[in-house]
């Protein structure tokens, strides 16, 4: 194996040509595509990150809205409870008043009836006793003295009452 310096030169020439051709026709486009892909990936990553933050924001908003709605519902229920108990109290109060009123009027009625009955009874008793007494005493006393006497007694009875 001898050293052929012409081969030495040919190797450099061949390599130079290959370097020139590859750089011009192959690597340039390849590098630019790889660069584009890098940018694409970066862009997509950025997009993914931003949509993630957005999604997080939406979730937070939803959570907040849910919490508000829950609180509102709670308030409404509380209010309803309060108003219902208030109403119940009112109703009970009214019912009590009504009963008292009814009781009072019933008592008044009873009193009135009693008075009437007593008055009626008194009239009856007087006339009956007059009749009885007149039948018993017709023979002994005249009617004038009799009536005077019975009236006196009955007045005593009425006054003692």
């Amino acid at each position: 194996m001898s050293f052929v310096w012409e081969n030495f030169v040919w190797a450099i020439v061949a390599f130079g040509i290959l370097y020139f051709l590859l750089s011009k026709y192959a690597f340039g486009p390849l590098f630019s595509v790889m660069e584009k892909r890098r940018e694409l990936v970066k862009q997509q990553l950025d997009e993914a990150a931003s949509s993630r933050t957005q999604a997080q924001q939406y979730i937070d908003e939803q959570k907040e809205a849910l919490a508000t709605a829950r609180k509102e519902a709670h308030d409404i229920i509380e209010q309803a409870k309060r108003s219902s108990s208030l109403q119940a109290d009112e109703i009970i109060e009214k019912a009590k008043e009504e009963t008292t009123r009814l009781k009072d009027s019933a008592a008044r009625d009873i009193e009135n009836e009693k008075e009437k009955a007593i008055a009626a009874l008194r009239g009856e008793v007087s006339s009956m006793s007059v009749a009885i007494a007149s039948k018993i005493l017709t023979k002994e006393i005249d009617e004038k003295d009799q009536t005077e006497l019975v009236g006196q007694y009955l007045n005593e009875v009425g006054g003692k009452q």
Binding site: W10, A14, L18, Y25, L30, V33
Partner: peptide, 25 residues
Amino acid sequence: AIGMLLITVIVVMVLAKLAVRNLSV
């Protein structure tokens, strides 16, 4: 040597050219 260098250059060039023929991102 000249022939083989030439073939090497052609093979590499064809390989590279095929690789970048349908470049797609």
